[in-house]
Write a protein that binds this DNA or RNA. Structure first.
Lengths: 112, 112
DNA sequence: TGGTTAAATAACCGTTGCGTAATATAATGA
DNA sequence: TCATTATATTACGCAACGGTTATTTAACCA
């Protein structure tokens, strides 16, 4: 599970990245956002994100502070960008596109 | 396997998308690019891509012509774009970033 | 027709992934 | 030193995934 693509395939891990995009958090604080998943479960998700180089960890006492690490996402962005030529038109056209699909959810914090 | 994220988690399916990005192809023609995978194996990958709305199909006699369908990729782009703010700098900075990592597999004209 | 071609579906199988409870590791602090 | 806190690791069950072979569906054509 080293791949960025496999790492973001899981909705829980995408939700973790969304959390960390707001601000860094200790592992336990992340876990408290997922009450239906056990502590080891969260820990394993964090390991996958680490191995995909999507997050960074710093140690503070017993805590592990996780934060977003852009490297992996840049790799993903590079891959998607290859296909931009086939979008209806330019970027603004893309956004109309997404709006038409009702894809404007990112404004109100939700999960998926 | 309805999710775009899960669909692109598999390297074979990403390779199929790369093929179709060049030009549309019949299912059999796609399959011939993957000699190590059986016909039903390829057919199942195509089904996943269809359900993720990443490809389009048109019928021509007994053939199914597959082509890239941007909707799904736009959804993915939307997700990645949320994180752009945390990249080192602007887009050009991102590209220097990628070059430094030797990530220039897709474009030959991308050297510094 | 019947035979051929193209692709999808069905049934099955080994591997992997996500979840769990139990345990281990490690730093804190009385 | 010892109990507590925070997190990771281990061991294991089960469902889903990617692959296979066999079969089905459907269009073409002699």
């Amino acid at each position: 599970m080293t791949s960025v693509f496999a790492a973001i395939a899981d909705p829980t891990r995408r939700a973790v990245l969304d959390l960390l995009a707001r601000r860094p958090r200790a592992a336990g604080e992340i876990g408290s956002e997922f009450p239906r998943i056990s502590q080891p479960g969260v820990s394993k998700h964090l390991r996958v994100l680490r191995e995909a180089r999507l997050v960074d960890v710093t140690v503070r006492a017993q805590e592990r502070i996780y934060s977003i690490k852009p490297e992996g996402l840049a790799e993903l962005y590079e891959w998607v960008a290859k296909y931009q030529a086939m979008w209806p038109d330019t970027l603004s056209a893309l956004e109309r596109y997404l709006d038409a699909r009702g894809a404007g959810e990112k404004a109100k914090g939700k999960k998926r």
